[in-house]
Design a protein around this nucleic acid. Structure first.
Lengths: 121, 121
DNA sequence: ATTTCATATGAATAATTGTTCATATGTTTA
DNA sequence: TAAACATATGAACAATTATTCATATGAAAT
């Protein structure tokens, strides 16, 4: 084994795959961008949050009504709305005592329906 | 407070919101479908898996090369490829000693680029 | 047949996360 | 001003998960 062999732990065909490895590695998007992208999908990766988005897709709604629709506690919904808001997927406005949440992004329903297409196969 | 008040824990405007609540609740997709959808997005919700998908988007590749491109252990990559395969996002074929992985779904790059659009704002 | 190589996998560990409970905040109504 | 109401939030707990390490599997080469 050569001292300067970068592929000591990799498959043997160093010369052939080397080109490919560098080509792909160089084209990889920024670490931060990939992290943000994963974070975004992580937000969609929870049934409760998906349900909330579906709900708000139908109509803007106060926290309490969302909790009622989903049969969950106000606290649980509120915590998840916080996550959705940080991801800029929902926004809110005050209306008297209540806080009304609504979708904040046109991409959302497209992303979800794309996912559904895959799942439905 | 009435005994038959279904909204004991909810906001006070029971009569007004009742219609909305039932309308939205009835239109909610099947529990199982929402679960599968969340599971799918969960798969995208990890930087390592996103990087693997990006890599395979450029070219099909053996496990060892993917590990090399991402600077991670063979074991870590193999575990994640298993997750991606279970989600039917990648497939593999044997080529001699190596196992070549490639993307298994046309939706993937669309879903990812939709997500990127949102993140890039 | 035995050794080598590429990949898969089970167990263990550390880190992350969703919900609950109790309570704080801020608005409205009496 | 005080009480009632809608929502937010911090701490705690249980559950999930990504990686590492050690080892198993299975194909190719000697």
């Amino acid at each position: 084994m050569h001292i300067d062999d970068k592929h000591a732990d990799c498959c043997d065909e160093s010369i052939i795959h080397d080109d490919l490895i560098h080509l792909v590695a160089e084209d990889m998007p920024e670490e931060e961008e990939l992290y943000d992208l994963a974070e975004l999908f992580k937000v969609f990766g929870d049934t409760t949050r998906i349900k909330i988005l579906y709900t708000l897709f139908k109509s803007e709604m106060c926290v309490c009504d969302i909790a009622e629709v989903l049969g969950m506690s106000q606290s649980a919904i509120s915590h998840q709305l916080r996550v959705l808001k940080q991801a800029k997927l929902v926004r809110n406005k005050r209306d008297g005592k209540q806080i009304i949440y609504s979708l904040d992004d046109a991409h959302i329903s497209k992303i979800i329906s794309m996912g559904l297409e895959h799942v439905k196969e």
